[in-house]
Write a protein that binds this DNA or RNA. Structure first.
Length: 485
RNA sequence: GGCCCCAUGGUGUAAUAGGUUAACACAUCACCCUUUCAAGGUGGAGAGUACGGGUUCGAUCCCCGUUGGGGUCACCA
């Protein structure tokens, strides 16, 4: 085959949110496409009417968009292989299933769910290892089928799995995987409501949309032989498969809702940057082979290859994600952080206060390396946005002695005499007071920090003073003196 | 249970044509810096590569088996 540009697809079902595992699948598809100048297709697999969720498709597209993974083709982007929503392609699946029936590769089945249930129980009791449909309806005559169809009996269409040679799945990540056809069930292709199952729909669509590489989660590996069979029965070229390792909980089971957040929306809400989440998730199952851990999306595109994708599942380790969020935060420029902080402020109790860009960027500069998230500028640096109301008990016990009010009183007077002080001026003034009383600077620094911030940790105390400004500092010393004396 | 996949420190990974004191990052601990908290720097602890057999002069790496874990067995995707 002449080398042609790959076409890949991300094919989620619209269940209401995007799973982080789905995000990684989408990312790898996207990276592979971009790396090889290919096309990234978004296709919506909404063939289960029972699971239909209002607005899910829109939110899926929105979240993908947030992450920066824009589909080249899809329900929103359009394209010449549409429609990209499976519920709009019912006639296509129907046509193809009819073709299969004509070729005896599929057949009508009128068995009731009751019969199926009985069959399952019988097989179970007989010690069968798995439930397999007994091809009961395969023996129906053409007339019988015609009559039942005319009578409007409930029916499905099943894949007619032929016994014979092993079914081979060539996987880019796992190599050759073999399946015995005896273990493959006559999978339902068209449900009684007329909708196709995933198996039929994804094969038909991947073929029609000229998908060259099917990159999806490992949970699909066991059903891949059914898909291979379908390609063969249709006489179609089989795409390349790449089954990605699963994302795991800390107990190594498949990442699930019960053990933490799985929706990308949850991570957005918690304040994670898209850059960090993408960076993190990219590293779950893939590495470039060098020691780089920090990546932007375009660097990932540059370095990504399916060959370097890991085979074993990867535990989703939130600590590392937090670290990456920290790293990405450190590298954001001041303007962006100011605007992010403003958004945060507008959602907080400080929404009615006003702060200048200059003030905010000074706060950011002072707090930056002490926070992992933008919202922590407010949580950890609240004293830049309001005077402390309470004072940390532990620090108070440790640093607030009988003499302290006297020292601070003098410090207040000294500060008051300064003109447009910068941090060095505060430092000099404090040194002077310490000398006058013949005490260590610590006797002043710690209570002063407590008084202006209410807490014992944070940026250098002189930085805090400079940012707060002389008047505010003096005011805070005065109120604290009243409250703590 | 059948079928399938997987197996390097707690976690994510490196060691791709079999030869390394098994490397890096997160987390963790200590020290330095800082009269705070972080960040940063330095160092430590932590895996003899699940186990057992082969093949080989030599296996993390190749083969077989065992064990363990996971996935999947729907008219869900």
């Amino acid at each position: 085959m002449i080398h042609c540009k790959p076409r890949v697809r991300f094919a989620p079902s619209p269940t209401g949110y995007l799973h982080v595992g789905g995000l990684r699948t989408a990312l790898y598809n996207y990276l592979f496409a971009k790396r090889n100048e290919g096309t990234f297709v978004l296709r919506i697999e909404d063939t289960d009417r029972n699971r239909f969720v209002e607005g899910a498709v829109e939110s899926l597209i929105e979240t993908l968009d947030w992450a920066g993974l824009k589909p080249d083709e899809g329900p929103a982007a359009g394209g010449s292989y549409g429609p990209y929503v499976q519920s709009q392609r019912l006639n296509i699946y129907n046509k193809h299933s009819q073709k299969l029936i004509e070729d005896h590769k599929a057949y009508y089945c009128f068995c009731s769910s009751e019969r199926l249930e009985i069959l399952r129980k019988e097989q179970q009791q007989a010690g069968a290892s798995q439930m397999k449909y007994d091809k009961h309806c395969l023996s129906l005559s053409a007339d019988q089928i015609h009559n039942k169809l005319q009578a409007g009996e409930n029916c499905v269409i099943r894949l007619n799995v032929q016994s014979g040679e092993k079914v081979i799945v060539e996987d880019l990540i796992r190599g050759r995987v073999e399946f015995d056809p005896e273990t493959i069930d006559d999978q339902v292709l068209i449900k009684s409501d007329g909708y196709p199952t995933y198996h039929l729909a994804n094969v038909v669509d991947d073929h029609l949309m000229e998908i060259t590489h099917v990159i999806r989660g490992e949970e699909w590996l066991p059903s891949t032989p059914k898909h291979v069979l379908l390609y063969q029965y249709f006489g179609w070229e089989i795409p390349k498969f790449a089954h990605l390792p699963l994302l795991l909980n800390s107990d190594r089971s498949k990442l699930s809702k019960r053990q933490g957040d799985v929706a990308v929306e949850d991570y957005i809400a918690k304040g994670y940057f898209k850059e960090a989440l993408i960076n993190f998730v990219a590293l779950l199952g893939w590495s470039a082979g060098d020691n780089q851990e920090f990546y932007y999306l375009d660097e990932l595109i540059d370095k990504f290859s399916l060959e370097r994708v890991q085979k074993s599942g990867a535990v989703f380790n939130i600590e590392k994600l937090n670290w990456l969020n920290f790293e990405h935060l450190q590298r954001k420029d001041s303007n962006e952080l100011v605007s992010l902080l403003r958004t945060e402020i507008s959602k907080s109790k400080y929404m009615n206060k006003s702060f200048s860009d200059d003030y905010l960027s000074r706060v950011i500069n002072a707090m930056k390396e002490r926070v992992n998230f933008v919202h922590e500028f407010l949580a950890n640096g609240f004293y830049f946005f309001e005077a402390p109301i309470e004072f940390e008990e532990k620090a108070r016990e440790k640093n607030w002695k009988a003499d302290t009010p006297v020292y601070l009183g003098k410090l207040k007077i000294e500060f008051a005499s300064l003109e447009n002080p910068v941090k060095e001026d505060y430092e000099t003034a404090l040194g002077k007071v310490a000398e006058e009383f013949e005490i260590g600077k610590g006797k002043l620094i710690h209570p002063l920090r407590l008084v202006v911030s209410g807490v014992s940790g944070g940026p250098g105390v002189y930085d805090i003073l400079e940012i707060l400004g002389k008047n505010e500092v003096i005011k805070r010393i005065e109120t604290a003196l009243q409250k703590l004396s």
